[in-house]
Protein backbone atom coordinates (compact mmCIF):
# COMPACT_ATOMS: atom_id res chain seq x y z
CA UNK A 1 0.00 0.00 0.00
CA UNK A 2 1.59 3.29 -0.99
CA UNK A 3 1.35 6.57 0.87
CA UNK A 4 -1.22 7.86 -1.54
CA UNK A 5 -3.66 5.05 -0.81
CA UNK A 6 -3.10 5.43 2.92
CA UNK A 7 -4.03 9.10 2.79
CA UNK A 8 -7.13 8.23 0.82
CA UNK A 9 -8.21 5.62 3.38
CA UNK A 10 -7.65 8.04 6.24
CA UNK A 11 -9.79 10.59 4.42
CA UNK A 12 -12.62 8.11 3.91
CA UNK A 13 -12.60 7.01 7.55
CA UNK A 14 -12.47 10.61 8.65
CA UNK A 15 -15.41 11.53 6.45
CA UNK A 16 -17.41 8.58 7.78
CA UNK A 17 -16.73 9.68 11.35
CA UNK A 18 -17.82 13.22 10.47
CA UNK A 19 -21.05 11.84 9.09
CA UNK A 20 -21.77 9.92 12.27
CA UNK A 21 -20.98 12.82 14.54
CA UNK A 22 -24.42 14.47 14.41
CA UNK A 23 -26.02 11.17 15.46
CA UNK A 24 -23.73 10.83 18.43
CA UNK A 25 -24.54 14.37 19.38
CA UNK A 26 -28.23 13.80 18.88
CA UNK A 27 -28.23 10.69 21.06
CA UNK A 28 -26.67 12.74 23.81
CA UNK A 29 -29.26 15.45 23.38
CA UNK A 30 -32.07 12.89 23.43
CA UNK A 31 -30.87 11.65 26.78
CA UNK A 32 -30.59 15.16 28.12
CA UNK A 33 -34.07 15.97 26.82
CA UNK A 34 -35.59 12.97 28.56
CA UNK A 35 -33.90 14.01 31.72
CA UNK A 36 -35.38 17.49 31.33
CA UNK A 37 -38.84 15.94 31.13
CA UNK A 38 -38.70 14.98 34.75
CA UNK A 39 -38.65 18.61 35.74
CA UNK A 40 -41.66 20.83 35.64
CA UNK A 41 -41.53 22.98 32.49
CA UNK A 42 -41.38 26.67 33.28
CA UNK A 43 -41.70 28.11 29.82
CA UNK A 44 -44.54 26.50 27.87
CA UNK A 45 -45.70 27.47 24.37
CA UNK A 46 -49.08 26.31 23.05
CA UNK A 47 -50.46 27.28 19.65
CA UNK A 48 -53.91 25.65 19.84
CA UNK A 49 -56.79 27.39 21.71
CA UNK A 50 -58.06 24.18 23.33
CA UNK A 51 -54.67 23.28 24.80
CA UNK A 52 -54.01 26.80 26.02
CA UNK A 53 -57.31 26.66 27.90
CA UNK A 54 -56.40 23.27 29.32
CA UNK A 55 -53.04 24.55 30.57
CA UNK A 56 -54.71 27.44 32.35
CA UNK A 57 -57.46 25.18 33.71
CA UNK A 58 -54.94 22.85 35.36
CA UNK A 59 -53.06 25.76 36.89
CA UNK A 60 -50.08 25.80 34.53
CA UNK A 61 -51.09 29.24 33.25
CA UNK A 62 -48.25 31.12 34.99
CA UNK A 63 -45.76 28.91 33.15
CA UNK A 64 -47.19 29.63 29.70
CA UNK A 65 -45.02 32.15 27.82
CA UNK A 66 -46.51 32.08 24.33
CA UNK A 67 -49.90 31.24 22.82
CA UNK A 68 -51.47 30.87 19.38
CA UNK A 69 -52.94 33.77 17.44
CA UNK A 70 -56.49 32.42 17.89
CA UNK A 71 -56.14 31.88 21.65
CA UNK A 72 -58.29 34.44 23.48
CA UNK A 73 -59.37 32.51 26.55
CA UNK A 74 -58.82 32.85 29.44
CA UNK A 75 -58.21 36.63 29.28
CA UNK A 76 -54.77 36.11 30.83
CA UNK A 77 -53.79 33.98 27.81
CA UNK A 78 -54.89 36.72 25.43
CA UNK A 79 -52.25 39.04 26.93
CA UNK A 80 -49.35 36.67 26.21
CA UNK A 81 -47.15 36.93 23.10
CA UNK A 82 -48.85 35.41 20.01
CA UNK A 83 -46.67 32.98 18.12
CA UNK A 84 -48.79 32.00 15.10
CA UNK A 85 -51.20 29.09 14.98
CA UNK A 86 -51.65 25.49 13.92
CA UNK A 87 -50.81 26.12 10.27
CA UNK A 88 -48.34 28.98 10.59
CA UNK A 89 -46.37 28.73 13.84
CA UNK A 90 -43.75 31.47 13.97
CA UNK A 91 -40.67 29.38 14.66
CA UNK A 92 -38.29 32.28 15.30
CA UNK A 93 -40.64 33.90 17.75
CA UNK A 94 -41.12 30.61 19.56
CA UNK A 95 -37.33 30.12 19.80
CA UNK A 96 -36.92 33.65 21.11
CA UNK A 97 -39.25 32.79 24.01
CA UNK A 98 -36.75 30.06 25.02
CA UNK A 99 -39.50 27.47 25.71
CA UNK A 100 -38.80 24.27 27.61
CA UNK A 101 -42.01 22.66 26.34
CA UNK A 102 -43.95 23.24 23.15
CA UNK A 103 -47.38 21.66 22.69
CA UNK A 104 -47.96 20.55 19.11
CA UNK A 105 -50.72 18.81 17.23
CA UNK A 106 -49.69 15.57 15.52
CA UNK A 107 -50.42 16.95 12.07
CA UNK A 108 -47.73 19.65 12.42
CA UNK A 109 -45.01 17.40 11.03
CA UNK A 110 -42.69 20.15 9.75
CA UNK A 111 -43.01 22.13 12.95
CA UNK A 112 -42.29 19.04 15.07
CA UNK A 113 -39.20 18.29 12.99
CA UNK A 114 -37.88 21.83 13.43
CA UNK A 115 -38.48 21.76 17.19
CA UNK A 116 -36.65 18.46 17.40
CA UNK A 117 -33.71 19.87 15.47
CA UNK A 118 -33.62 22.71 17.98
CA UNK A 119 -33.81 20.12 20.82
CA UNK A 120 -36.90 21.70 22.31
CA UNK A 121 -39.03 19.21 24.26
CA UNK A 122 -42.45 18.71 22.76
CA UNK A 123 -45.79 17.41 23.92
CA UNK A 124 -47.83 16.08 21.03
CA UNK A 125 -51.44 14.99 20.88
CA UNK A 126 -54.27 14.32 18.49
CA UNK A 127 -58.02 14.66 18.88
CA UNK A 128 -60.66 12.50 17.22
CA UNK A 129 -63.56 12.79 19.64
CA UNK A 130 -64.79 13.78 23.04
CA UNK A 131 -62.91 11.09 25.02
CA UNK A 132 -59.58 12.47 23.77
CA UNK A 133 -60.20 15.82 25.46
CA UNK A 134 -60.07 14.59 29.05
CA UNK A 135 -57.29 12.19 28.12
CA UNK A 136 -55.21 15.05 26.75
CA UNK A 137 -55.85 17.06 29.93
CA UNK A 138 -54.51 14.16 32.03
CA UNK A 139 -51.46 13.61 29.81
CA UNK A 140 -50.79 17.34 29.81
CA UNK A 141 -50.94 17.26 33.62
CA UNK A 142 -48.22 14.62 33.70
CA UNK A 143 -46.07 16.53 31.23
CA UNK A 144 -46.17 19.76 33.21
CA UNK A 145 -46.00 18.17 36.65
CA UNK A 146 -49.58 18.90 37.66
CA UNK A 147 -51.05 15.42 37.65
CA UNK A 148 -53.44 16.05 40.55
CA UNK A 149 -54.88 19.29 39.19
CA UNK A 150 -55.30 17.74 35.75
CA UNK A 151 -57.05 14.73 37.23
CA UNK A 152 -59.44 17.01 39.13
CA UNK A 153 -60.27 19.04 36.01
CA UNK A 154 -60.69 15.97 33.79
CA UNK A 155 -62.80 14.10 36.33
CA UNK A 156 -64.90 17.24 36.84
CA UNK A 157 -65.62 17.47 33.13
CA UNK A 158 -66.52 13.78 32.99
CA UNK A 159 -68.79 14.11 36.02
CA UNK A 160 -70.58 17.17 34.61
CA UNK A 161 -71.08 15.51 31.24
CA UNK A 162 -72.41 12.37 32.95
CA UNK A 163 -74.86 14.52 34.89
CA UNK A 164 -76.16 16.12 31.72
CA UNK A 165 -76.40 12.73 30.05
CA UNK A 166 -78.30 11.25 33.03
CA UNK A 167 -80.82 14.07 33.19
CA UNK A 168 -81.91 13.79 29.58
CA UNK A 169 -81.49 10.01 29.36
CA UNK A 170 -85.15 9.22 30.00
CA UNK A 171 -86.36 11.63 27.30
CA UNK A 172 -86.86 10.70 23.65
CA UNK A 173 -83.86 11.55 21.49
CA UNK A 174 -84.27 14.61 19.28
CA UNK A 175 -83.11 14.15 15.69
CA UNK A 176 -80.95 17.22 15.29
CA UNK A 177 -79.20 18.99 12.45
CA UNK A 178 -76.08 20.57 13.95
CA UNK A 179 -75.00 23.38 11.62
CA UNK A 180 -71.45 24.77 11.89
CA UNK A 181 -71.94 27.41 9.21
CA UNK A 182 -73.51 28.29 5.89
CA UNK A 183 -73.57 31.06 3.32
CA UNK A 184 -74.86 34.16 5.14
CA UNK A 185 -78.46 34.99 4.28
CA UNK A 186 -79.10 31.78 2.36
CA UNK A 187 -79.36 28.03 2.79
CA UNK A 188 -76.49 27.37 0.41
CA UNK A 189 -73.34 25.55 1.44
CA UNK A 190 -74.56 24.20 4.79
CA UNK A 191 -71.76 22.69 6.88
CA UNK A 192 -73.20 20.21 9.32
CA UNK A 193 -71.91 17.71 11.83
CA UNK A 194 -71.52 14.13 10.67
CA UNK A 195 -71.39 11.05 12.89
CA UNK A 196 -67.95 11.67 14.45
CA UNK A 197 -66.14 14.44 16.29
CA UNK A 198 -66.45 16.04 19.70
CA UNK A 199 -69.39 18.25 18.73
CA UNK A 200 -71.27 15.18 17.54
CA UNK A 201 -70.43 13.48 20.85
CA UNK A 202 -71.68 16.51 22.80
CA UNK A 203 -74.92 16.47 20.82
CA UNK A 204 -75.46 12.83 21.77
CA UNK A 205 -74.79 13.59 25.46
CA UNK A 206 -77.28 16.46 25.26
CA UNK A 207 -80.01 14.02 24.23
CA UNK A 208 -79.92 14.38 20.48
CA UNK A 209 -79.19 12.11 17.57
CA UNK A 210 -77.29 13.46 14.63
CA UNK A 211 -79.35 13.86 11.44
CA UNK A 212 -76.24 12.83 9.52
CA UNK A 213 -75.12 10.14 11.94
CA UNK A 214 -74.43 7.69 9.09
CA UNK A 215 -71.85 9.97 7.46
CA UNK A 216 -68.64 9.25 9.34
CA UNK A 217 -67.04 12.66 8.88
CA UNK A 218 -66.64 15.53 11.33
CA UNK A 219 -68.10 18.03 8.92
CA UNK A 220 -70.20 17.51 5.80
CA UNK A 221 -71.56 19.91 3.21
CA UNK A 222 -75.21 19.08 2.70
CA UNK A 223 -77.77 20.06 0.09
CA UNK A 224 -81.23 21.48 0.71
CA UNK A 225 -82.65 18.19 -0.56
CA UNK A 226 -80.87 16.33 2.23
CA UNK A 227 -82.15 18.74 4.86
CA UNK A 228 -85.69 18.09 3.64
CA UNK A 229 -85.17 14.33 3.37
CA UNK A 230 -83.59 13.91 6.81
CA UNK A 231 -86.40 15.97 8.37
CA UNK A 232 -84.57 17.05 11.55
CA UNK A 233 -86.80 17.77 14.56
CA UNK A 234 -84.41 20.45 15.79
CA UNK A 235 -81.71 22.58 14.21
CA UNK A 236 -78.80 23.89 16.27
CA UNK A 237 -76.65 26.55 14.67
CA UNK A 238 -73.33 27.77 16.06
CA UNK A 239 -72.41 31.46 15.77
CA UNK A 240 -69.43 33.59 16.78
CA UNK A 241 -69.61 35.47 20.05
CA UNK A 242 -69.85 38.86 18.32
CA UNK A 243 -72.85 38.00 16.09
CA UNK A 244 -75.51 40.70 16.52
CA UNK A 245 -79.11 39.96 17.51
CA UNK A 246 -80.33 41.51 14.24
CA UNK A 247 -78.12 39.17 12.28
CA UNK A 248 -79.32 36.15 14.26
CA UNK A 249 -82.94 37.10 13.61
CA UNK A 250 -82.27 37.51 9.89
CA UNK A 251 -80.44 34.18 9.68
CA UNK A 252 -83.23 32.46 11.58
CA UNK A 253 -85.80 33.71 9.08
CA UNK A 254 -83.82 32.18 6.20
CA UNK A 255 -84.91 28.69 7.27
CA UNK A 256 -88.50 29.57 6.35
CA UNK A 257 -87.54 28.65 2.79
CA UNK A 258 -87.88 25.01 3.83
CA UNK A 259 -91.19 24.98 5.71
CA UNK A 260 -91.66 21.21 5.52
CA UNK A 261 -88.68 20.55 7.82
CA UNK A 262 -90.19 19.69 11.25
CA UNK A 263 -87.66 21.88 13.06
CA UNK A 264 -88.71 24.86 10.95
CA UNK A 265 -92.42 24.11 11.19
CA UNK A 266 -92.26 23.76 14.99
CA UNK A 267 -89.92 26.71 15.38
CA UNK A 268 -87.20 24.56 16.93
CA UNK A 269 -84.19 26.41 15.56
CA UNK A 270 -81.63 27.15 18.25
CA UNK A 271 -78.88 29.66 17.58
CA UNK A 272 -76.04 29.21 20.05
CA UNK A 273 -73.60 32.06 20.32
CA UNK A 274 -70.10 31.77 21.74
CA UNK A 275 -66.56 31.17 20.57
CA UNK A 276 -66.14 28.39 23.15
CA UNK A 277 -68.65 26.19 21.30
CA UNK A 278 -66.08 25.03 18.78
CA UNK A 279 -63.10 24.72 21.13
CA UNK A 280 -62.47 21.12 22.26
CA UNK A 281 -61.22 22.27 25.65
CA UNK A 282 -62.43 22.46 29.28
CA UNK A 283 -65.49 24.54 28.37
CA UNK A 284 -67.21 21.72 26.46
CA UNK A 285 -69.46 21.25 29.49
CA UNK A 286 -70.96 24.68 28.84
CA UNK A 287 -71.54 23.76 25.21
CA UNK A 288 -73.21 20.48 26.19
CA UNK A 289 -75.47 22.34 28.66
CA UNK A 290 -76.56 24.83 26.01
CA UNK A 291 -77.37 21.99 23.61
CA UNK A 292 -79.29 20.05 26.27
CA UNK A 293 -81.23 23.20 27.24
CA UNK A 294 -82.19 23.67 23.61
CA UNK A 295 -83.17 20.09 22.90
CA UNK A 296 -84.90 19.36 26.19
CA UNK A 297 -86.25 22.63 27.60
CA UNK A 298 -88.41 20.77 30.16
CA UNK A 299 -85.24 19.73 31.98
CA UNK A 300 -83.62 23.13 31.64
CA UNK A 301 -83.52 24.09 35.30
CA UNK A 302 -82.49 20.66 36.44
CA UNK A 303 -79.37 20.96 34.35
CA UNK A 304 -77.85 23.92 36.09
CA UNK A 305 -76.37 23.35 39.51
CA UNK A 306 -77.70 25.86 42.03
Amino acid sequence: MDAHQKTLRALIVGAACLCLLPYVGRAGLEARRNEARRFEPKRIVSVVPAVTEMLFAIGAGPNVVGVGSYDHFPPAADKLPKVGALLDPDFEKILSLRPDLVVVYDSQADFIARLQRASIPIFHYQHAGLADITQTIRRLGEAVGRTKDAEAVAAGIERDLDAIRARVASLPKTRTLLVFGREPGSLRGIYASGGVGFLHDLLVIAGGTDAFDDVKKQSVVISSEQVLARAPEAIIELYDQDTTDAKLAAERAVWKQLPAVPAVRNNRIYQLRGDFLTVPGPRIVQAARLMADALHPSKKNALHPQ
Partner: peptide
Protein backbone atom coordinates in the same frame (compact mmCIF):
# COMPACT_ATOMS: atom_id res chain seq x y z
CA UNK B 1 -97.48 22.58 0.33
CA UNK B 2 -95.97 23.73 3.62
CA UNK B 3 -96.20 20.18 5.00
CA UNK B 4 -95.48 18.25 1.81
CA UNK B 5 -91.86 17.16 2.01
CA UNK B 6 -91.92 15.39 -1.36
CA UNK B 7 -93.29 18.46 -3.10
CA UNK B 8 -90.71 20.67 -1.39
CA UNK B 9 -87.85 18.41 -2.38
CA UNK B 10 -89.14 18.53 -5.94
CA UNK B 11 -90.01 22.23 -6.21
CA UNK B 12 -87.55 23.87 -3.78
CA UNK B 13 -84.51 21.62 -3.91
Amino acid sequence: FADNIDAQIFFIA
